[in-house]
Design a protein around this nucleic acid. Structure first.
Lengths: 118, 118
DNA sequence: CAGATACTAAACCACTTGCTTAAGTGATTT
DNA sequence: AAATCACTTAAGCAAGTGGTTTAGTATCTG
């Protein structure tokens, strides 16, 4: 529970790369071996493996090796964590706008038609 | 519409740093001058300015200079863009689980009451 | 068992990040 | 006008990133 900060760091960082987002997008359609994740990417297999490592370290993907094939799958809870952070910010933001709106209405009905602007 | 890829890269990257997320969190409470965003951070003012630059480049924050004070505010549409990407992935993922569930039910009712479970 | 397959590990290198300090600019206060 | 304030720019540097190639390790296949 302590280092949620670092968790978010890693998750956002992991998603800040098109190759890694492509992997995540592929994995939302179902599990896949490393080979299949790497094939469409314009880079060598070791490079793709490093990206996969970043996704796993961030907790966005989990994988298991059976025989010589490592099968990867998405960890949906991690995505939810990011979603929550963003939703919280938006909620705060929208609540603020609501309060501002209330305040403006208060001012509007406070005095008579006195124009104190400018 | 073209470089949405790059947009997402920049937005996720911008949020992958605790100093920058702190700035965003502060700004969801309302606009603030650079000074106020920089003060709580454990770094020099120029360093904080660079973080702010990353947020602006990503379109998450907009700012305007009046006199010698630059006032910053959040750009809520950008947050919504990220939220949409994540929500889309989760929707895809959950839809897949639903389909899988349907499929399993199909198999289950295919034969008679044969218990094939563990 | 020879050879192909699917990763995995290691060494390396160009480039970018994330700070720093020092100096500069234009507004505002005294 | 002089001093202060709130940035802004620039130069520089240690550390990290994102790729490469090369070589190695277990599987499978014939």
């Amino acid at each position: 529970m302590l280092n949620q900060q670092t968790d978010l760091d890693q998750m956002f960082h992991a998603l800040a790369d098109p190759a890694r987002r492509a992997m995540v997008e592929r994995l939302t359609k179902g599990p896949a071996p490393v080979m299949e994740l790497a094939r469409p990417l314009p880079m060598s297999l070791p490079a793709a493996m490093q990206h996969l490592g970043v996704l796993e370290a961030a907790g966005l993907v989990r994988s298991e090796k059976v025989g010589r094939v490592r099968t990867c799958a998405i960890e949906s809870q991690a995505l939810r964590r990011i979603e929550q952070w963003i939703t919280a910010r938006r909620a705060e933001w929208e609540e603020r706008l609501d309060r501002l709106d209330e305040y403006l209405k208060t001012i509007d009905s406070e005095g008579d038609g006195n124009d104190s602007g400018a």
